[in-house]
Amino acid sequence: MIFGRSERGKPPVEPVTLKILVAGGFGVGKTTLVGAVSEIRPLRTEELLTEAGRPVDDTSGVEAKNTTTVAMDFGRITLREDLVLYLFGTPGQERFWFMWDELSEGALGAVVLADTRRLEDCFAAIDYFERRAIPFLVGVNCFEGAARYPADDVRRALDLDDHVPLLMCDARDRESVKETLIGVVQHAMAQAAQRRQTVTT
């Protein structure tokens, strides 16, 4: 009898995978946040795009001159051997929004990172998740040198719905990022419970 390679090891674990998105403006700390909790240094994945901003696999004959790439970084947190959470930093520019559609499909929820020195940079992300009813919270990344504002003032400036959590965080700090992610999952649970209630009553 011939022993194939596969007979050496046991079959790999097939984990349940979940994803949380990390959105926000340019340089707001998305990659830093992913890196603070990921067990691997943030990895990069790329997709080829046509100039129109569509993924290449939507067209048949693609000409090189019409393509560009969009990069996303992501991290991994193995919660249990059979339960793995992935964090994806979303590409900032609006013309890459089809990538957001792809990323947000089936996502557990999202963190929108905000910098109080340029709050307007996260408006687009907030609009995006609000419209699609994707559970999200706003994390105000507290950079040194940026003035601290009371949470209520930031809420008002963002015109945030009352049910959307807002918390202060430090994207470099593992404990702070853990709390932020837990907040996203709790919010997702609350939103799901509410939806169930609306259905049954």
Partner: peptide, 23 residues
Amino acid sequence: PVPPAELPDESILRDVINGLRAL
């Protein structure tokens, strides 16, 4: 992947929270 909206119950999400706390 199973979309979170189609999860049979909350137990997986509780596991995620507990797993994050334990990190």
